[in-house]
Design a binder for these strands. Structure first.
Lengths: 220, 220
DNA sequence: GTTTGTGAAGGCTTTCACAGCC
DNA sequence: GGCTGTGAAAGCCTTCACAAAC
């Protein structure tokens, strides 16, 4: 039983639209905090620096949530976006690579709060194994990856190894049956079509900013 | 004296092109490791899962680096991309928000290696102040932000506070003269046109993956 | 022969603007 | 009056395909 009706084939919905739904969810959260219970797309756009037509179009992919002449009911909108994004189900994460970034994400609230839960952190370097992370998880040996994925019902694999081992970790994850991977290693990992891989390279953001600093200095 | 000539107004170059230059740089790094010294756009595309026309077009914004019939000289390409992105200058970062993410980034190699250097980490919570981070930096009081920005010649401000304080930290950074900001708080911060703000919301990636897991389960 | 650099085409995304509804 | 939902327009990005260069 769903609270919303899809208007279009979900496979045709752009990742950009999905990413924006997350943003809208943050906005709606803030409106709830402030105690607002009805909001128009214009008001949302004005408050959070968005485009009202885009908000309406994004939401329209999933049904008709609004009331013409009135706007959207904030708590209903919240419920619908949560359901669309599947945030009403628990998602179990396994982090592979217990370096700085891996251990950090392990206790980063965004990664282990509400419906997301880190169920393990692995490394192949024996000197890191058994260091208890501040979150209370032990670092385990990555040779146990396959076993752990099954035992702990991992939904999402997170790669935080150096570039050199990322592809092999990805292969092991796919082999173990993981179909959804978040990769922080600075390399494009390859996986079968059926596996969803999302890559995030934090250094790219710094390098982009560096480019803009360079431009700024030239224009002086 | 620059190693490359711009063909177009840099302001018209898309951020997507700049982000890809970072990716190309990683690829070129790997080619250098492997000892390859000439590469065609086709070969680059094949090896790293890219599009050859796009590589050529991206590079063409900044000059003519290739030799027709031959390809690109790997070390020259490396030098040029480094220069375009401004990675030949030191970039000094100040992190504000000494929670899990902030302290993690502080010793994440991508953030404090080569030309990027974390010169300070601040928090307004007195219980966090003076905890030495593993990188050896002390957490300082964020009331000193303006002073520290000037003293330590900060180039890039990094916001790792909760959403609720992000806008105020951003305002303080702008006030202190920082023109380039990387924001990890899950909120769109507002800044004057002259300030470049890049936002990264790690939770969005998880929520996107969660959406795809939901789709997958429905289609069963 | 090979490969670059690039106009043109195609595809995708955002924005406009208004009919339809409250 | 107001606001949503949406076709059409505009804008942006990627890909194709080939002339120019080696």
């Amino acid at each position: 039983m769903t609270a919303y009706k899809r208007h279009v084939d979900p496979a045709t919905i752009s990742d950009l639209t999905i990413a924006r739904l997350s943003i809208y969810l943050r906005c709606v959260d803030r409106l709830i905090e402030v105690g607002i219970d009805t909001v128009s797309s214009q008001e949302l756009a004005r408050r959070f620096n968005l485009n009202s037509a885009q908000i309406r179009k994004d939401l329209a992919h999933f049904g008709e949530f609004g009331v013409r002449g009135v706007g959207y009911n904030v708590s209903e909108l919240h419920r619908c976006i949560v359901e669309i994004l599947g945030l009403d189900s628990e998602r179990r994460l396994l982090i592979v690579g217990a370096g700085n970034l891996g251990t950090a994400l392990c206790h980063y609230s965004g990664f282990s709060g509400e419906n997301f839960l880190v169920v393990g952190i692995l490394d192949r370097d024996s000197s890191r194994i058994s260091d208890p992370t501040p979150a209370g998880l032990l670092v385990e040996d990555s040779v146990r990856l396959g076993e752990i994925v099954k035992q702990r019902q991992v939904d999402i694999g997170v790669i935080t190894t150096p570039a050199s081992s990322a592809q092999s970790v990805c292969d092991q994850m796919v082999e173990a049956g993981i179909s959804t991977i978040l990769n922080f290693a600075p390399i494009r990992v390859r996986a079968p079509e059926t596996v969803m891989v999302k890559s995030v390279d934090l250094k790219i953001y710094l390098e982009e900013l560096s480019f803009h600093l360079t431009q700024r200095n030239r224009n002086r």
